[in-house]
């Protein structure tokens, strides 16, 4: 699916240069479920942003589906991103002014899909994540777990091959957190590649492999058998 080769990311201000990622080499196969762990400031989010093509590496190669996208301009990245990658955030990032339905539809809006097909796909995915009865509600009327389910629906409605989840359970209580994890697991079972940043070892256990980051380096990679 993707391969990071000697990839580094620096942030420069006038006086200091901060190294966020230092010479990282990671390979993720299609259909994998990978958890990224590590303490705050270790570069997890930076890594996820680069993988998600929201940010560009300072050095090194990023080969995504056989293509080195490291030097691509934003418009090209945006195109690859919207075809292949779905995002789930800790803070859900739903648009407050749009209904559940419209929030999910947003992911299809920029894909040149006819309105009827969009409605169909949104309805289907809402069923799948069990939010159909809340279709006309605004995000502020939902609980956190429900909001995150909407976000998950939005991430997968475009049939994205890979989902990047940045602490998807961070704002949820344990019951809701587990609910979301199970949803991700079943998506993975259907073939979606999932890369998830998490602080929770318990939730990391849902993944097949855990990558531990520390100060911008990959420290260990744990493989575990399928749960």
């Amino acid at each position: 699916m993707l391969k990071l080769h000697n990839l580094s990311k620096y942030y420069r201000t006038d006086e200091v240069e901060t190294v966020a990622l230092d010479n990282v080499n990671i390979e993720i196969e299609s259909g994998e479920f990978v958890a990224i762990m590590g303490p705050s400031g270790c570069g997890k989010s930076t890594l996820l942003n680069i993988v998600g093509m929201l940010d560009s590496p300072s050095e090194g190669d990023y080969i995504f589906m056989g293509e080195n996208v490291a030097g691509y301009p934003e418009s090209k990245l945006s195109n690859i991103r919207k075809q292949n990658i779905g995002f789930i955030f800790q803070s859900f990032n739903l648009i407050d002014e749009l209904t559940v339905e419209e929030n999910i539809e947003l992911a299809l809006l920029y894909h040149n899909i006819p309105a009827s097909e969009r409605r169909e796909r949104v309805a289907k995915v809402m069923d799948k994540v069990g939010i159909a009865h809340r279709a006309k509600h605004m995000p502020s009327q939902l609980s956190g777990g429900q909001q995150q389910r909407v976000a998950v629906a939005r991430a997968v409605v475009g049939d994205q091959a890979m989902i990047l989840a940045d602490e998807p359970t961070g704002n949820l209580d344990s019951a809701h957190g587990q609910e979301v994890m199970e949803m991700l697991q079943s998506l993975n079972a259907e073939g979606t590649t999932i890369v998830m940043v998490t602080h929770s070892p318990a939730h990391a256990d849902y993944a097949r492999r855990t990558i531990n980051l520390f100060d911008g380096h990959v420290v260990t990679e744990d493989l575990r058998a399928a749960v």
């Binding site: 929201l54 945006s78 990032n93 648009i95 947003l106 992911a107 920029y110």
Partner: peptide
């Protein structure tokens, strides 16, 4: 800003 960010992640282009 936030809404624009989300839309862009969802694939909205600059002209959009």
């Amino acid at each position: 800003t936030k809404e624009i960010g989300i839309r862009k992640i969802m694939g909205a282009s600059v002209p959009q």
